[in-house]
């Protein structure tokens, strides 16, 4: 890490498809501008770096007030939400996730696994949280290649002494 270089650290605590992207987008932008990037994955955020999960992140329409009918291409007033009762229909989460993936692809953004690889190749340092790994029974081999290793809170705090920290 270069001396006096700006450093941004993200804490990813969510594993939903929509909540995976902010750190990936901002982290990638930061690397492109020469800023050091560290990402700490904790709780549900562990899904982003878990081999069996990262390609299957989902977006649930239930209790999501930002998910509007218009997002699904339904011609209704812009503020009409998806009724929660519709969200519990089997397959709705899969459908909403598919819509979101399609929209992400339309703007030329990569999938979550591709994005993570870009970040790793660009020099971002990725650390899954030790306590969550223990809690979920996850070992180093369960995580994608390219992570730096499982880290404790103390490790993370040591690494990010001079960083701007963003919690997601």
């Amino acid at each position: 890490m270069a001396e006096n270089n700006r450093h941004i650290a993200f804490i990813c605590s969510k594993g939903d498809l929509d909540m995976a992207y902010p750190a990936l987008i901002m982290g990638w932008g930061a690397l492109g501008d020469g800023i050091d990037v560290t990402i700490f994955f904790t709780f549900w955020g562990m899904d982003l770096v878990t081999k069996k999960r990262l390609g299957k992140l989902q977006l649930a329409p239930v209790a999501n007030t930002s998910m509007k009918m218009s997002l699904m291409g339904v011609p209704v007033p812009a503020n009409w939400g998806i009724p929660n009762v519709m969200g519990i229909i089997p397959g709705m989460t899969r459908f909403a996730s598919w819509i979101m993936r399609k929209k992400i692809k339309q703007v030329g953004a990569p999938t979550v696994p591709e994005y993570l690889q870009m970040l790793i190749d660009g020099g971002a340092k990725l650390y899954p949280c030790k306590m969550t790994a223990d809690m979920m029974g996850l070992k180093e081999e369960d995580f994608i290649d390219g992570i730096q290793g499982i880290a404790t809170v103390s490790d993370f705090l040591d690494m990010t002494k001079d960083a701007e920290i963003i919690f997601i």
Binding site: I25, G29, G32, D33, G34, G108
Partner: peptide
């Protein structure tokens, strides 16, 4: 250390417009 702006500067172009 910052390929986005460096490439653009060296190529005589403006700052990249886009996030990815």
């Amino acid at each position: 250390k910052g390929p986005a702006k460096k490439v653009a500067r060296i190529a005589g172009l403006g700052k990249p417009e886009g996030c990815v």
